[in-house]
Computed example of a mutant assay.
Amino acid sequence: MFTPSFLNGVEYLKISVLGCGRWAAFLAWYTESLGNQVMVWGRETSKRYQRLQDTRKNDFLMLPKQVSLSHSLDETISFGEIVIISISSQSLRSLGKQLHALGNIENKTFVLCMKGLEIGTGERLSRILLEELGAGIKVAVWVGPGHVQDFIKGIPNCMVIGSDDIAVTRQIVDEFSSNLIRFYYGTDLLGIEIGAAAKNVVGIAAGMLDGLQYTSLKGALMARGTKELSNLIEAMGGDPMTVYGLSHLGDYEATLFSLHSNNRRFGEDFVRGEVSDTLAEGVYTVEALMDLARIYKIELPICQAVYNIIKGSQDIKGELLSLFLRPVKAE
């Protein structure tokens, strides 16, 4: 159980947020709004951290003055009982090694608010953290639909918390639920993580269809993309129905259609020959999914098409349209 602190008789938790991008800043803003004490860590050389330190603002929100900022990882880890991590997925293993070297992690709960798979291994993020910090630590993931731009306007949404330990899941849901975010319990961590990561790849494909003026095909893309990833989750030993929940299908509106979606925008810019200046995790995830497809000997035609295009296929339209012209068979 979390051990609350008290200030003037009011109960609160100490929360550390590792990362200073737009989602990390929102998580600090949100958890502080629930009455908790929050400290945000960013690298001293990071332009995002420097901007928060100088102005307490980014392009979307202003951090309350009660939120502390630190470029000391040791100080930030020591501060929080709950440690929220929101960084690039490919940087997690390196961060895990740093945390292990610092120590003082045994009694903390780590919440991964990020989506992706490791290139070269296809490893899930929760597994990476367990490998680096030790099997005894408590790890959960927080995923699902929602954009900072909508949340700060007071537009609510539903999200999911998943862990291999249902007690940890329930504690986080109880602490972080509000009228702005309604949380659901996730019971299939493998399926949640694969689904949450893979929806970004489908988002890139959706953006490519937008760029080619084939937006009407996104309905078929949604249906087949969901089925494709359910097959992978089942092959890996997860529940194939998990992909139809909030972590994947439930996040499609925010990822395949929203103007705020980095992955959709990347796909649209790519087929138009424009350079995207936003982080699109699906670019890395599709490489990891190709690794998993080989390991589990399963076809992932949408992911394969996105991979081929990003890696230099000259026939972008042909690659995408081939997905909808495959041999006739029962759905």
Rank of each mutant, 00 (worst) to 15 (best):
P4D: 13
N8S: 12
L13M: 15
L13A: 07
K14A: 03
I15C: 01
S16H: 06
V17A: 01
G19M: 08
G21M: 01
G21T: 08
W23G: 02
T31P: 02
G35N: 07
N36L: 03
M39I: 13
G42M: 03
G42A: 09
K47F: 06
Q50W: 00
R51H: 09
D54F: 04
R56C: 09
R56Q: 10
K65Q: 13
I77D: 00
I77V: 15
F79W: 12
G80C: 09
I84W: 08
Q90N: 08
L102Q: 10
N104M: 00
E106N: 12
F110A: 09
V111Q: 03
K115A: 04
G116E: 09
L117A: 08
L125N: 04
L125G: 03
L130C: 05
A135V: 15
G136W: 05
I137F: 00
K138I: 00
K138M: 02
A140F: 02
V141Q: 00
V143S: 12
V148K: 01
Q149T: 12
D150N: 15
P156C: 10
P156W: 10
P156M: 12
C158F: 14
M159R: 13
I161L: 06
D164M: 06
D164E: 14
I166N: 02
T169P: 07
E175N: 06
N179H: 15
F183H: 01
G186Y: 03
L189H: 08
I194D: 07
A197Q: 05
V202L: 14
L209K: 04
G211K: 02
Q213G: 07
T215Y: 04
R224A: 05
L229R: 03
S230Q: 14
S230E: 12
L232F: 11
D239E: 15
T242K: 00
S247V: 10
G250Y: 02
D251C: 10
Y252F: 15
A254H: 11
L256E: 05
L256A: 06
F257Q: 12
S258T: 09
H260I: 02
S261D: 10
S261Q: 06
G267K: 00
D269H: 11
L279D: 04
T285P: 03
D291Y: 00
A293Q: 13
R294L: 09
I295Y: 03
Y296R: 03
P301L: 07
Q304S: 13
Q304G: 13
Q304E: 15
A305T: 14
A305C: 11
Y307K: 10
Y307M: 05
N308I: 04
I316C: 05
K317G: 01
G318R: 04
L320Q: 04
F324A: 06
P327V: 11
K329T: 12
A330M: 12
